[in-house]
């Protein structure tokens, strides 16, 4: 399943360019509500997705555009969803925080911190019970590790040996509260170990390291060893959301992390190893820009879901015909 080296770069650049455009579109009020950018954390989503197969399921958070793109959710449908248009992946019902795509077995939109963890364990239970091969990869931040749901989900997954890959994106802050101010024990691998889960801390700015760690963990899960836990040390380069003035982080700290930009690190590696030429990287960048332009054009084309559909899909009526995802 290992993607070819340029593919990792392509995915990270797609996410970066897509989200940079999102920030612009937000100031033009094309995108409304809360907007949480993943910029800086791309290596985690891309590295883990690179290790997954089409059979696997994904649960992410409200900071999930990157995961959706890396998983193959169409960029146009994603952008249209953020525009609130009916050609969006949830017909404009969800918005930035509730991105879902059954065809990619992707459910990104848990906007209550920690709320996705029990769901992920249940998705895994269904796969195991129905004899399907999938592993459920569950993304969450360091802030989620204090929620009760987090501990309940870890215990249940470990107790019943369910195929879950817990992916902690430790970006050092729960919104504006530093890890040391929200966790009594800042070693986030301790708690999963207390629940009997093998846990590993990994450099989340190195996409290859992320992918290798995920591959190792997935091998163990697919063997039937039960869940695994990976903590990726990462950092968001932008504020928590577009509303956040970001006054709680030291400028030198931000600069220190930006010096380890996952895109720059991987570009250097590709060039140094002779796996890519500068022109290849430029082409990747140009292709990503073109994809984003096309996504915006697709979103602009979409209409708003008609008023007659307001009460649609509150309850199921014809769902039996569709079958389960």
């Amino acid at each position: 399943m290992t993607p070819e080296p340029l593919e990792r770069m392509r995915q990270m650049v797609r996410i970066r360019r897509f989200e940079e455009r999102c920030a612009e579109l937000y100031s033009q009020t094309k995108i409304r509500g809360f907007l949480h950018l993943y910029i800086g954390e791309e290596a985690v989503g891309v590295g883990v997705m690179g290790a997954l197969t089409d059979d696997d399921q994904i649960v992410a958070t409200y900071r999930e555009h990157g995961h959706a793109l890396a998983r193959g959710v169409d960029a146009g449908a994603l952008m249209a969803e953020m525009f609130g248009r009916s050609n969006g992946c949830a017909r404009g019902r969800g918005g930035s925080m509730h991105i879902a795509d059954v065809s990619r077995r992707f459910w990104g939109g848990f906007a209550i911190v920690g709320g996705g963890l029990p769901i992920a364990v249940g998705l895994a239970l269904a796969d195991k019970t129905l004899g399907r091969a999938g592993v459920t990869a569950c993304f969450f931040g360091d802030g989620a590790t204090e929620e009760g749901a987090y501990h309940e989900a870890l215990n249940l997954a470990s107790l019943w040996k369910l195929p879950v890959l817990f992916v902690c994106e430790n970006n050092q802050y729960a919104m504006g509260t530093a890890l040391s101010a929200h966790a009594a024990d800042t070693e986030l691998t301790h708690e999963p170990r207390a629940h009997g889960i093998v846990a590993e801390r990994v450099d989340g700015m190195d996409v290859v390291a992320v992918e290798q760690a995920a591959t190792r963990a997935l091998e163990a899960i697919r063997r039937g060893d039960g869940p695994r836990f990976l903590e990726f040390m990462t950092y968001r380069f932008r504020a928590h959301s577009m509303y956040d003035a970001d006054k709680y982080r030291d400028k030198t700290e931000i600069a220190r992390w930006k010096a380890r930009d996952p895109l720059a690190l991987y570009a250097e590696y590709l060039l140094a190893e002779g796996l890519a030429a500068r022109a290849d990287l430029d082409a990747i960048d140009a292709a990503a820009m073109a994809e984003v332009d096309a996504a915006v054009a697709f979103a602009e084309q979409g209409g708003l879901e008609p008023i007659e559909d307001l009460t649609k899909d509150v309850y199921t009526h014809d769902v039996s015909a569709r079958g389960a995802p």
Partner: peptide, 21 residues
């Protein structure tokens, strides 16, 4: 039988329902 973890096992069951059970 579940542990005494209503939020956890309720969420787990909801996830299982989403995926075909």
């Amino acid at each position: 039988d579940t542990p005494i973890a209503e939020n956890g096992f309720s969420g787990l069951a909801i996830g299982a329902a989403m995926a075909g059970l």
